[in-house]
């Protein structure tokens, strides 16, 4: 049942994030926040400010 349900939702939208999103981390991509900010405290990134730029800041994994 769950399998069918997810398949149906998946037909309308993408279920999982891209490889890029997964690498950067779901916190920044989907919530614009980080649990552990390095330096200046919790950050809020506007989409225009560029997630790309934030990539460099994001902890390398």
């Amino acid at each position: 049942m769950t399998f069918v349900l997810l398949r149906v939702i998946g037909a309308f939208t993408q279920l999982r994030g891209s490889e890029h999103e997964e690498a950067v981390g779901m916190d920044i991509i989907h919530h614009g926040e980080e649990a552990y900010a390095s330096g200046e405290g919790a950050i809020l990134i506007t989409p225009e400010a560029g997630i790309e730029e934030e990539l460099a800041v994001a902890e390398p994994r």
Binding site: T13, L15, R16, M26
Partner: peptide, 16 residues
């Protein structure tokens, strides 16, 4: 976790 997009998860949670 760690890979599903948040929006689709909300829809999934509602229907499930």
């Amino acid at each position: 976790v760690e890979r599903m997009r948040f929006g689709p998860f909300l829809i999934f949670a509602a229907l499930w």
